[in-house]
């Protein structure tokens, strides 16, 4: 028995979420009294692969097959099921990223394994029950799922667990999946890398603007704040709909759902559909000129004032703070 963690790398480096998944997997392994292995399909150097040992992963399997450079959930799931058989894993852990979201259910079907997607906490064993908690109703409630199948798959929401060091000397081993040419049924024409330096769903800090900012020409101060804080930028839906900002920035129920450590909302009213995508944030700051704006009810910190006066001053204060730290 073991726990197998599927980790994603980008340009040869693990993302923070890979270390979160590793930490999660190692803790599940400890809970069940088994080893935790990791599997990486993306390109990464041996030293990078070995760094998973810092988080307690005992063996890192990597796949070096150029046919897998393009993402296809069915093919990836086939590779992972073969690794699952080799490592005799009963629990599989993935990150609920765009890719993880697509692979996990295919895997679940192939293995007839129960899946909890978007888990936010470690599993709990209660007698014979294996319980996993996740957000439901777009962040308005939590549900604790019981998993009935022998094999279990958990896809973890990023930013739910802090990476924790538990160094051991990990072995790195090649894993050679058996794939036929007929497995590759999708032809990838092009991969367009996300623009912007920090992707919204991975960002720890997000600065977001709404219709209160009056026009796209006023986003300079929002981008400035994001630049100072190393944050990603986001917006409310009407702002994307009227093309002030790209659609990829739209957060909320119909846009991207995010869970950063800090969400700063400027000139956004706080409609329930907007909150649905952001209320998993750890800390929320709301800047709005209307003291009755519904967003204040969900906020941790609030400033009532005109964004065009408040934001430049706040940027100044952030800049001073950064200079002194």
């Amino acid at each position: 028995m073991s726990v197998l963690v599927f980790v994603e790398a980008s340009e040869g480096k693990f993302k923070k979420s890979a270390f979160e998944a590793a930490t999660y997997g190692v803790k599940v392994g400890t809970l069940l009294g088994v080893e935790t292995h990791a599997l990486c399909i993306d390109e990464a150097a041996e030293s990078e692969l070995k760094s998973l040992g810092d988080y307690g992963i005992s063996k890192v399997w990597y796949v070096n097959d150029s046919r897998l450079r393009n993402f296809d959930p069915l093919v990836y799931a086939k590779v992972i099921t073969q690794a699952e058989a080799q490592t005799n894993a009963d629990v599989l852990v993935l990150i609920q990223s765009y890719s993880g979201k697509a692979i996990a259910p295919v895997l679940a079907a192939k293995l007839r394994a129960g899946l909890v997607s978007g888990a936010i906490d470690l599993p709990v064993l209660e007698g014979n029950s294996f319980l996993v908690k996740k957000n439901v109703f777009s962040g308005k409630a939590f549900a604790t799922y019981e998993m009935h199948s022998a094999k279990k798959i958990i896809s973890l929401m990023s930013n739910s667990i802090a990476p924790e060091k538990k160094p051991i000397d990990a072995t790195v081993a090649a894993f050679k999946p058996e794939l036929e040419d007929s497995d590759f049924r999708v032809t990838v024409k092009e991969v367009v890398k996300a623009s912007g330096t920090i992707s919204l769903s991975d960002a720890e800090i997000v600065v977001s603007g709404g219709r209160g900012l009056k026009g796209p020409e006023n986003w300079g101060m929002v981008e400035e704040m994001a630049g100072i804080l190393g944050a990603a930028t986001a917006c409310s839906r009407p702002v994307a709909d009227i093309h002030w900002r790209p659609h990829t920035e739209h957060v909320g129920q119909t846009g991207v759902a995010i869970r950063p450590n800090l969400y700063i909302a400027i000139g956004i009213s706080g409609a329930i559909q907007h909150l649905a995508g952001v209320n998993g944030s750890k800390v929320m700051v709301v800047i709005n000129k209307d003291p009755e704006a519904p967003f204040f009810k969900a906020a941790d910190y609030g400033i009532v004032g005109d964004a065009f006066e408040v934001v430049p001053k706040l940027n100044e204060a952030f800049r001073k703070f950064k200079a002194g730290n």
């Binding site: 679940a108 007839r112 394994a113 129960g114 899946l115 909890v116 029950s129 319980l131 439901v136 962040g139 308005k140 409630a141 939590f142 549900a143 604790t144 799922y145 019981e146 998993m147 009935h148 199948s149 209320n279 709301v286 204040f296 009810k297 969900a298 906020a299 941790d300 910190y301 609030g302």
Partner: peptide, 16 residues
């Protein structure tokens, strides 16, 4: 393969 055992509501925020 799964079932919901229980639900919880998030703690009310104390106000900003």
């Amino acid at each position: 393969l799964t079932s919901v055992k229980k639900y919880d509501l998030p703690k009310e925020k104390a106000g900003p």
